[in-house]
């Protein structure tokens, strides 16, 4: 197989052990701008491939059943639960994880700056998912009302902050974005 320079071949995995061994599928995905070609087992979820194979551990695994939102990533620009997305399904698609939210030069997204300034992260485990969901929200609604923010975060659980400072941070990032535009 031939791959161009930006393509990384990450194909060397421990062989699944038992007789039920299933065929691996080769997928090509772009993650935070980097292209990867991977051999994945059909039952691997995107979160597992991101964390265990690409070692992009910023995306968290809090439940595995779509309830907590810690695993939220952008798939072709739309937020999804990477724990409920099969890796084979994302062949040919573009993924943005929390590691790809800041600019490649390292400049933080306004949502990230606002999370820091407003104290919107405590233990931080929900934070990657919260940030990705917030980025998604502001991309579709640049000036959300408080209730819209709260509704949009329905798929992201936090046990530390009571969401107050998260909601404040998103509102502040939205205002800031607007000022920057206007």
């Amino acid at each position: 197989m031939n791959f161009d320079a930006t393509n990384r071949w990450v194909g060397c995995f421990t062989q699944p052990a038992d007789a039920k061994q299933m065929k691996h599928h080769v997928i090509r995905i772009t993650v935070n701008g980097d292209r990867h070609t991977l051999a994945v087992a059909p039952h691997w979820t995107l979160v597992e491939v991101l964390r265990e194979h690409l070692r992009l551990t910023g995306t968290k695994h809090g439940c595995g059943t779509g309830d907590c939102g810690a695993c939220t990533v952008l798939l072709d620009g739309r937020s999804v639960n990477s724990c409920l997305t099969l890796a084979v399904e994302v062949d040919g698609r573009e993924i943005t994880t929390i590691e790809g939210i800041a600019s490649s030069g390292g400049e933080l997204h306004p949502v990230q700056d606002a999370f820091i300034a407003h104290g919107a992260t405590q233990c931080g485990f929900c934070t990657p998912g919260m940030v990705v969901s917030s980025v998604q929200l502001l991309a579709t609604n640049s000036r959300p009302e408080e209730q819209e923010i709260r509704h949009a975060l329905g798929g992201n659980l936090c046990r530390c902050t009571g969401y107050t400072k998260i909601v404040e941070a998103i509102a502040a990032a939205a205002t800031q974005g607007e000022e920057a535009e206007g």
Partner: peptide
Amino acid sequence: SLPRPDAKAKVTGGAQYTDDIH
């Protein structure tokens, strides 16, 4: 009301939790 020193690591996905270690 100083912000947390680890906040930047947490909002960028850099903060390492046990399961993140390989």
